[in-house]
Amino acid sequence: MSVTLNPAAHTRIVPAVVFDIKRPQRMVERSIMVARRSWMVLLSGFFEPFFYLLSIRIGLSALVGDVEVGGELVPYDQFVAPGLMAASAMNGAVFDSTMNVFFKLKHSKLYDAVLTTPMSAGDVALGEIAWAVLRGALYSTAFMLAMWALGMVQSPWIVLSVPICVLIGFSFAAIGMALTTFMRSWEDFEYVPAITLPLFLFSATFYPVSQYGDWAWLVQLSPLYHGVVLVRASNLGEWSPALIGHAVVLVVLAVVGATVASRRIERLLLT
């Protein structure tokens, strides 16, 4: 029987699609083709962090004064900017990997068309995650430049904030895409902000984790918190071994998400 002779169908630990990734770059090529025409939207993406940071600098920073981080006093705007940078990496990746992917999956049937060519489900999943990450890197660079323009950068190590945000983006894009494959209709997306908003607000984004008091342990559960800690460290230029643990959390999420996503996409499209 020809049907049962597929060797890849018997692998369990590594999903079959992982063996079948040849040209994910073609999906990225497509996204670049689309983005070329809407470069204005990309450009305007620079202004959003700029407005936020400017508003904080003008108003809140003066009201708050300095904040204590690890025994050191940091001006409030320099404290909060890395938090917002990490959060925007998360939000961008989540949008790209949920609403955007769902639209292509269910409405425009883009992936159905792609899969009639020699492209595989693995190519599609990895290609789309890669594009989300690439776009995230652009936005994060814009964010970093906005911080620099407003004098919120403390250490040259800040350049590392871009790869850190790429990692944050990768993790959330992978998880978001995996969740999207379980969504049945647009109404299910109401639950997305129900997850991302608490993450945004309770990840030590706006004030030090010490302010949570007895609840501080709960913040550890937020994946974004681990990202915020890393970006903040890069802005202060202060590195410690504990940061490795924070990075590992994000990497694990990325791997789990990507695995589930490519497996599910194959199941959904190849029926």
Partner: peptide, 22 residues
């Protein structure tokens, strides 16, 4: 893009599940 449940299917003499790409 849809694996057969049973029976045999050959396209250009190849198996659509294993050799889909080709």
């Amino acid at each position: 893009v849809s694996p057969p449940t049973s029976g045999s299917l050959r396209i250009f003499g190849l198996d659509p599940v294993a050799d889909g790409r080709q």
